[in-house]
Design a protein around this nucleic acid. Structure first.
Lengths: 144, 144
DNA sequence: CTGCTGTTTAGAATAGTTATAAAACTGATT
DNA sequence: AATCAGTTTTATAACTATTCTAAACAGCAG
């Protein structure tokens, strides 16, 4: 009966280590947020994460969820994916990959890396350096 | 002294034809909006367009600018480019091309097509068809 | 001319996000 | 141990981009 307790303890330590590695100070709020976010590889909106966090017992304000996600992005723990003006996803998988976005269902799906294009660092606008490649293939459901 | 008048008449006719071709009913508001938008190939935000339109004499509400841009997108006259939660650009050039976005300056720059990747229609998620490819290369200013 | 129908407009409302002021923490000093 | 200064974190309140909806309008039929 202590499997749950010991698993959650392990999980807690895993998160502690992760946040430390990326130079993020530990707080109660950040812990719950990270815990929920890194439970698995996922694409989540700030709002959905806010719901999930607050359903898990601990109360955290929506602003804190945003601030924390912003911090995680700056520290490199998660990646922001802008789909449209009202849909920003946070990807708990930061490895180099791109996305399919289903405009009908709203699902964001990982693209196998081999499909992703390889870019040349030459030919960027003068005086600029590559920051990040944002590739989203918008797909729609086939009519049945 | 009638060069201006005749040019604007020509321009008016060009816009009339354009909107007709794409099946957009003509109204006073749509005409000013289209006139401003298609004056040249450009990347413009709804807000900037709203300003430009209202500086040119005719008063149009911001909601109408948004509604009209939405209509133009659906009809295929312009293309939406989502940069982040607070920045949606409308591109008056709908030909197949992609973009560089300078995160320091906020400029959106066309990418020469030959740099753009060529995608395969195979390997899309099951039951889906390609809708549109959104590729934005985020660049930052080189430190001097 | 009058009533009907679909379309267009724009004021008001909404939703996602951010700024700021207050709260909590840290850790040095007495 | 208590106090204080400085810093970090939180979350309320405010903001801004966008959309909804009710009213205005245009075009057609009788």
């Amino acid at each position: 009966m202590d499997t749950n307790i010991s698993r959650s303890r392990q999980q807690r330590q895993r998160i502690d280590k992760l946040l430390n590695t990326y130079g993020v100070n530990l707080t109660r709020q950040r812990h719950v947020i990270a815990d929920t976010l890194f439970a698995r590889d996922q694409h989540v909106t700030a709002d959905k994460l806010f719901e999930a966090v607050n359903n898990s017992g601990t109360k955290v304000s929506k602003a804190t969820v945003y601030n924390t996600l912003g911090l995680f992005v700056r520290k490199g723990l998660v990646r922001e994916i802008f789909i449209d003006a009202t849909r920003t996803f946070y990807d708990s998988n930061t490895s180099r990959h791109h996305h399919f976005y289903n405009v009908d269902t709203g699902d964001l799906i990982d693209m196998k890396e081999r499909l992703a294009p390889h870019f040349i660092d030459q030919d960027l606008p003068d005086g600029t350096a590559m920051d990040m490649v944002d590739l989203v293939i918008r797909v729609k459901n086939k009519a049945p």
